[in-house]
Design a binder for these strands. Structure first.
Lengths: 302, 302
DNA sequence: CTGAAAGCGCTTACAG
DNA sequence: CTGAAAGCGCTTACAG
C-alpha cells in the first residue's frame, strides 16, 4: 500500500511551513506566485490530495452532499429517472471534489431521521430534496437544522406544485373544446397505472388519448389496451411523460415528453454548490420537456 | 440552527475527562459500568453523535464505503438491479453508521481514477466492485492501494466468471439432447437484445425458446417477436434472468429467474464490513435464483 | 478504574 | 510575504 503525502511532507520538501503550503495550495493571498507554483508542482508530483476528514474537521464542512430516496422496496429502481439524476449531480460534484452520499429509505419519517443523523454527524453540507409536497414537513426539519437544500422535481412532481399541472391540463382542454378531460390520481406504480387505464377504457365515452405521468404506467397502460383489444394508436393515443428505454422497446414505441435529466441534475448540483458558497440562488426552472413522436399517437378517426 | 453536542460538552456535564467519555461511549474497558451508563444517558439526552470527520481523522477510517458504476449515460438506469442493490447495501450500512458514497462514471478508466482519488482523500474504507471481468485491472489497482473490496455479480455477470454460465448452458443442452443451443453475446442493451432476437428468429431452425440475460433485452425481444408475427408463448418461449416490474407489465408477462437483490446487497455489505473488521471472509455465493412462471413460456408444439 | 496529553492533517488568525 | 501556534472533535497510548 502506497503512502499518502501530507501537507507536512510537502512543507518539508519545499522548506516552508505547513501554513504557507496550505495557503499556496488553496490559492489564498500571502505567498509569492513563484512559491505557489513550486508548491503546486511538488504537490502534483507527490500525488497530494487533501485528506477529506482533516479538511472537513478544520474547515467545518463535510465536502459531501446528501440525497435520500424515500421509496418502498417494491417500486425501487423501476424509474430510470433517479439513476440519471444522480449521474448528472455526481458529474458536477466530482469536478468540485465533493462526494454524493446516498440513502434509500422506505418513507418520509425515515428520511427525516437520516437528515438529523447526517446533521449531527456533520456528514453532509447540503441536501438534494426530491418529491416535494405542499406543506412538506421535511422542509421545516431542514430549516431547523440549518441544512441548505435544493428542491428537485421528481418524476410525476414537476417542480414545486403538482397541482399546477392538473389545472393547466384542464385549462388547455377547455381551450381546445375537448368533450371531456379527466385526471386520475395514482401512486405512479405500474399496478395503479394499469388499473386506471382499465377503468378509463371501460367507461363511456372511451377516451381517445391518455397522458401518463411516468414511463412505467404508460407501458402498463399500453399492455392493458392490448388485452382489451383497443388498438394503439388507432383507437387510443398514448403519451408518456419522461422518456426511457422502456418507451422505445415496447410495441408500439411510445410518444413521449422527454427531458434531459442528467443536465437537470447537473444544474441542481451547481445550484446547491452556489448556495453553500453563500450566493443567493432563486428558484430554478424545471427542465423543459420536448415532445418525441413515436408510434403510439395518431389523429383519432373522425 | 441547533448546536451540536461534543464529547467535551458531555465530559463537562458529567464531571469527567474527555478520554473517559470517549471510552464509555465506545464500550471500551476502563470505565465503571455505572459511569458508562451515566455517560450514555447524557449523550442520548444531548443528542450526541460522533462528528464523522473528527472520528475519521483520529481513527484513520472514513466511515464510508464506495460504489462506482461505470455505465454509458444512455443505458443508465434501465436496469432496476442497481437501485435495489444499493438499497440493500445501504440498509445494512445505515445500521452501522456507515455511509455509502456513490459515483457514476462512463468507463473503467474513470472508475480507476475515482478509486485513486478516494484513496488519496481517505474518502472511503472499502469498495463494492461490480461487473468483474477476467483479469480485471481494477482489482490490481485496489490491491496496490490497499483498498479492501467485495465483488458483486451484476446483472449479466453472475458471480466471478461470466464464461461459466455459457458452459453450463451447453452442458445442460447436451444432456437434454436439444437439437441446438446457441449463445449470443450482447452488451445487455435493449438494442442489441432486439437485434440478436431478430437474427435468431430469422434463422432456421427457428429457436423454440430464448433465455435473456436481463429484463430489458427480454422485453425488447418480446417486442421483436410480436413484430415478426411470432406468437409468444406458442411459437416462442421467453425467459428473463432477473425479474423486474417490467417483466410483469408487458404482454404477455414474462417468466423469469428471480433473485432477492436487496438481500444480496445486504449480504455484500455485511461481508465488506466484516473484512474491514479484520475477519477473513471467503468468496460468497451469488443469490440463488428462483423460477417464476408467468405467461411467456409454454411447451413447444410437438 | 480515571485523567492529562499527544496526535490525526488540515485551516486560520496572529505576529513578525 | 512568511512562520509559529492554536484549534477543529475525536482516539489512544501512557501515567497515576
Amino acid at each position: 500500500m502506497t503512502k499518502r503525502a501530507t501537507i507536512a511532507d510537502i512543507a518539508a520538501r519545499a522548506g516552508l511551513s505547513k501554513g504557507a503550503v496550505s495557503y499556496a495550495l488553496n490559492g489564498l493571498p500571502g505567498v509569492s506566485e513563484s512559491t505557489r507554483q513550486r508548491v503546486l508542482k511538488l504537490a502534483a508530483e507527490m500525488g497530494w490530495r487533501p485528506n477529506s476528514a482533516a479538511r472537513a474537521l478544520s474547515a467545518s464542512r463535510a465536502g459531501a452532499l446528501g440525497l435520500v430516496m424515500a421509496r418502498p422496496a417494491s417500486t425501487l429502481g423501476v424509474e430510470p429517472f433517479f439513476m440519471k439524476l444522480m449521474s448528472g449531480i455526481e458529474n458536477t460534484l466530482a469536478a468540485r471534489s465533493t462526494a454524493l452520499v446516498l440513502q434509500v429509505v422506505p418513507d418520509h419519517d425515515a428520511e427525516v431521521e437520516a437528515y438529523r443523523r447526517w446533521w449531527a454527524e456533520r456528514r453532509v453540507d447540503g441536501i438534494f430534496l426530491i418529491d416535494l409536497r405542499i406543506e412538506d414537513k421535511r422542509v421545516l426539519v431542514l430549516e431547523e437544522l440549518g441544512l441548505p437544500a435544493v428542491v428537485i422535481g421528481g418524476p410525476g412532481h414537476h417542480g414545486r406544485l403538482p397541482g399546477v399541472r392538473s389545472q393547466a391540463f384542464g385549462e388547455v382542454a377547455a381551450r381546445l373544446a375537448l368533450a371531456s378531460a379527466v385526471t386520475v390520481a395514482t401512486d405512479y406504480s405500474p399496478e395503479q397505472g394499469a388499473q386506471a387505464t382499465r377503468r378509463l377504457l371501460s367507461g363511456t365515452p372511451r377516451p381517445s388519448a391518455v397522458i401518463y405521468d411516468n414511463d412505467v404506467m404508460a407501458v402498463a397502460g399500453t399492455s392493458v389496451a392490448h388485452e382489451m383489444g383497443v388498438d394503439v394508436p388507432r383507437d387510443l393515443s398514448i403519451v408518456a411523460w419522461d422518456d426511457s428505454v422502456l418507451c422505445e422497446i415496447v410495441h408500439p414505441p411510445l410518444t413521449v415528453l422527454s427531458r434531459d435529466i442528467m443536465a437537470y441534475g447537473a444544474r441542481a448540483a451547481e445550484r446547491l454548490l452556489a448556495l453553500l458558497d453563500g450566493e443567493s440562488v432563486g428558484d430554478f426552472e424545471d427542465a423543459t420537456p420536448r415532445l418525441i413522436t413515436r408510434g403510439s399517437t395518431a389523429r383519432p378517426p373522425a
